[in-house]
Design a protein around this nucleic acid. Structure first.
Length: 782
DNA sequence: CTCAAGAGCCTTTTT
DNA sequence: GGCTCTTGAG
């Protein structure tokens, strides 16, 4: 039978398991996704479980997509009825149906970290707490942890008694909850908590979902927090045919890869799973199909220094492979340069392609030097994470307009855009409106609507009136079923003059913002086209709120990926560079000096995750000296290096495939980016005056030699009165070579008419594929 | 009300 | 070193 083909004994056991709780301890690279997908397939075709009775939960959209795709391949059409989704989007789906019983409306807004921060800033001001002593971040952190543990404001207050700090947090928490509710908004934690509340308080709804989700599977179980654990526990409670309660719950996880404790993940969920469900069957997957024996030996050696873990040890039938490479460089520039060289050499030798490489680091800040060196050598790359597309200012601004239209009670969004672009509505006016709203028990937008009754509004009155009429007219347009989301967004851009103003700025930054706006338009168009159900504004906003940057990791692009160790979880690459292996960097300073040994253990797990990403070759590196926060630091090599047995390490040797991994770049990195062919054997001498030796202008070249196409005919005609691009002025077509200000040269592979504009697909010479709106992309035929 | 210079910040963050 | 928020002068 096909479903069981190619599975090892343990995997097969896991796939065949039918009813009752199942805990699968799956080491890195042991084929857990395979087990999950095959298990779903097996349930459907062998046990004749209805697809709609299956719920599979993941943490990322990417994992969810991958799972759905793979299940699709095995079981075909039926797979569409399975709920495969992230915790958060599953909860949103449930909440969109039932949230009115909790006193919200179905068009609720989801607040992201930025919105939470603005909201908390307002609250601290309102409670007259000195911002010097009370930081939004800290308060929000406390609230988030409380929510993760399902502690509400009242309970928090009780627990806070006697502790002034906590008592203050409690007051903030209370106000925060009130304002979220008044704004008809939920934060990310709420998505889980409110779902739990909904299920707990409404037995009929709970029963419905319990019987609907007769089989539940959870991926990355080690990362669940207490709230998520409770959610799962509530749901996994179906009635069996004989009327008895049965927990058809299958969780897959690896305690050694638990790296989100700082975010509330509760490792006890996995460690105590069998206590929670005594009838649990445990299956361990320890055979690794990803890496060489040497890489696994290194990983095992490191992780065995942790005390609290379930006993598990990876093995494989793969050859020993290369040793683990370890190099200590003088500076981080040298480190980055050598890696770039190594990648370049391996790729031009035809041994591997760019997409086979990933460079991993502990903190986002470390990416810049690497980026510089890659740009210098024309290596295509992408930084994953750091700045999410939807977190960019221009995107958030436009989304705030959309959110205002969808949910007028969303004060944070209204306040965000009330004076963007500048309308001459200043702080004092905003304060007066805020006060009016507070004293009259209305929303901020509600107060705007009755601006004539607000004292001291004076000159701003007319400006407010025109803002309100703008929003009202947009809202009215939305009532027309012919009016598409794309039209709405275009009208917002046009009416506010957002793009026009950016165009006037005509700086690099403004132009890249214009481009991002074009991308947002593309996204809204593709949402309308690809949406399974009727496309709606709230649907779009929801989709946008629940995607992370990670999800855009396109495997078709042949580029090197740069990311943090956290982002790398779940991925694999033939060649891994693990940089900054220094005490103080990795393990990080705080963990290194903490009284709590668990923090160091979490760093070690992170190291384990990093090592086990590598399939063929793993290169570790560190630098004697490194700039951090503007000052020079000297770090010893990481203690994790010492934990790898000597015989596995090849020090200062070669990295990548037979490529010299040192020195030759020093000259280049210190001579202002001119790529000197000096490859003197001189060791890079370190002097403390080196800070001065790093030419100041050096960084500036990082703009990657942008030539801005200021006078593109498209743009000069484009935005003034009409936003509509004139197709006639597009002088290129499919097959033409074009040049883009940022991405360089490429070939047009597709053109699609979208409204009065064109969506152009381009494959750039570095193999990057991009879709962009013609009126925004400023492509020039060459 | 707006702009431009100064102060303060700085792990990791699947949603 | 670079980004964001605050503060003070016009």
């Amino acid at each position: 039978m096909q479903i069981l083909e190619g599975l090892n004994l343990e995997q097969e056991k896991a796939v065949k398991h039918y009813k009752g709780p199942l805990l699968i301890l799956a080491g890195a690279g042991s084929g857990k996704t395979k087990v999950l997908t095959h298990r779903i397939a097996y349930l459907i075709s062998e046990h004749h479980v209805n697809p709609w009775n299956i719920l599979a939960l993941t943490f990322t959209n990417k994992a969810a997509e991958e799972m759905r795709e793979r299940v699709n391949r095995i079981v075909g059409q039926d797979a569409n009825d399975i709920w495969v989704s992230t915790f958060h989007s599953a909860c949103v789906k449930i909440l969109r149906r039932h949230i009115d019983v909790l006193g919200y409306t179905r068009s609720f807004t989801i607040y992201d970290a930025d919105d939470q921060k603005s909201l908390m800033r307002d609250i601290l001001k309102y409670l007259q707490l000195d911002p010097k002593n009370w930081k939004e971040r800290a308060v929000l952190g406390a609230i988030s942890s409380a929510k993760d543990e399902l502690i509400g404001p009242e309970q928090y207050e009780l627990q806070a008694q006697g502790n002034y700090t906590k008592e203050t947090y409690a007051r903030c928490y209370q106000e925060y909850e009130k304002r979220l509710h008044d704004s008809n908004a939920l934060d990310f934690d709420d998505l889980i908590c409110k779902t739990i509340q909904l299920l707990k308080e409404n037995e009929d709804i709970l029963n419905y979902y319990q019987n609907r989700f007769r089989f539940i599977l959870v991926d990355e179980y080690q990362d669940t927090n207490t709230a998520q654990f409770h959610l799962i526990r509530l749901l996994a409670h179906a009635q069996d045919e004989d009327g008895s309660v049965i927990h058809n719950l299958c969780v897959v996880g690896d305690d050694d890869q638990s790296i989100y404790k700082f975010r509330g993940a509760n490792i006890h969920n996995i460690l105590n799973f069998e206590n929670q469900y005594p009838e649990t069957k445990i299956i361990k997957l320890e055979e690794n199909y990803r890496s060489t024996q040497n890489i696994l030996d290194a990983a095992n050696a490191v992780i065995k220094n942790n005390s609290t873990r379930m006993n598990k040890s990876l093995w494989c039938q793969n050859p020993k492979g290369d040793p683990i490479y370890f190099t200590q460089f003088q500076t981080e520039y040298e480190e980055a340069g050598s890696i770039a060289d190594a990648i370049s050499t391996v790729v031009s030798a035809g041994i591997a392609s760019y997409k086979d490489f990933a460079i991993l680091y502990r903190t986002n800040a470390q990416s810049r030097v690497l980026e510089e060196k890659l740009v210098l050598r024309n290596i295509p790359y992408r930084i994953v994470g750091s700045v999410n597309f939807y977190q960019r200012k221009e995107i958030k601004d436009l989304l705030a307009y959309l959110r205002t239209i969808e949910n007028g009670m969303d004060d944070i969004s209204v306040k965000r855009i009330i004076n963007i672009p500048k309308r001459g509505i200043g702080l004092t006016t905003i304060d007066r409106i805020t006060n009016y709203a507070l004293t009259h028990g209305t929303s901020f937008y509600g107060a705007l609507e009755s601006y004539e009754y607000i004292d001291g509004i004076g000159r701003s009155a007319s400006k407010i009136a025109s803002f309100v009429s703008l929003i009202d007219s947009l809202k009215r347009h939305m009532e027309n079923p012919e009016y598409r989301l794309e039209d709405l967004l275009r009208e917002i851009i046009e009416e506010t003059g957002y793009v026009r103003l950016l165009k006037e700025e005509n700086t690099d930054q403004a132009n890249s913002r214009i481009e991002n706006i074009g991308e947002l338009l593309s996204k809204i168009v593709s949402y309308e086209e690809n949406c399974e159900n009727e496309p709606t504004l709230s649907g779009f906003l929801e989709e946008v709120a629940l995607v992370a940057d990670m999800d855009n990791t396109d495997e078709n692009n042949d580029i090197v990926l740069l990311m943090t160790l956290h982002s790398a979880k779940g991925l694999e690459f033939p060649y891994i560079y693990l940089v900054g292996m220094e005490d103080g960097i990795f393990p990080g300073y705080t963990a290194l000096h903490s009284d709590n040994p668990e923090e160091l253990e979490e760093e070690r797990r992170l190291c384990y995750v990093g090592i086990t990403r590598a399939m063929k070759k793993l290169s570790l590196s560190c630098a004697y000296s490194r700039f951090r926060n503007g000052e020079q630091q000297f770090n010893r090599h990481s203690q994790f290096i010492d934990e790898i047995p000597r015989y596995l390490l090849k020090q200062n040797g070669t990295a990548g495939a037979s490529v010299s991994f040192h020195e030759q770049d020093t000259a280049a990195s210190l001579s202002g980016g001119t790529y000197a062919t000096r490859h003197s054997g001189k060791p890079a001498r370190f002097s403390s005056g080196q800070k001065g030796a790093e030419p100041n202008g050096y960084r500036k070249t990082n703009g990657s030699g942008k030539t801005l196409l200021k006078d593109h005919p498209m743009i000069s005609k484009g935005f003034g009165k009409k936003l509509t691009a004139e197709p006639a002025s597009i002088d290129y077509t499919v097959g033409d070579r074009v040049k883009h200000a940022r991405f360089g040269e490429g070939t047009v592979t597709g053109m699609k008419e979208v409204g009065s504009d064109f969506q152009v697909s381009v494959t750039f010479d570095n193999q990057m594929n991009r879709k962009m709106m013609a009126s925004f992309a400023k492509l020039k035929k060459i």
